[in-house]
Amino acid sequence: MNTLIVYPLVGIGLFCIGLYALIMQPHLLRKLLAVNIMGSGVFLVLVSLGMSNTNAQQDPVPHAMIITGIVVAISATALALVFMIKIALKTGKAELSNPEEK
């Protein structure tokens, strides 16, 4: 049994935790954190599944993909943060309540 298998499993766990929080948490900052946790989980799976083979040299392709993914995640987080701040400014709370409540 390869002990490195723990890493992708943790990655999947992070993905699921993030998914649960994204659905259940009403506050937008928490939703945003949840998305970032999911992202970290996916990156972990991407890089650590490749590590399963012990002897051969590391596969650099997932590493490069993750760098791309991280830049995308930063960009998305920045954009979402601005949306959240503007929503909080305009409605008084950083939540996506249903329009008919207002």
Binding site: L46, P62, A80
Partner: peptide
């Protein structure tokens, strides 16, 4: 518009992440 955009952004990020996890599995 901001609410719509935020909801859309979260949904599209979630969709992309699920897709990316699939890509990771296929690649490996």
């Amino acid at each position: 518009a901001l609410r719509g955009a935020m909801r859309y952004l979260l949904v599209t990020l979630l969709g992309s992440l699920a897709y990316l996890l699939g890509v990771a599995l296929l690649y490996h």
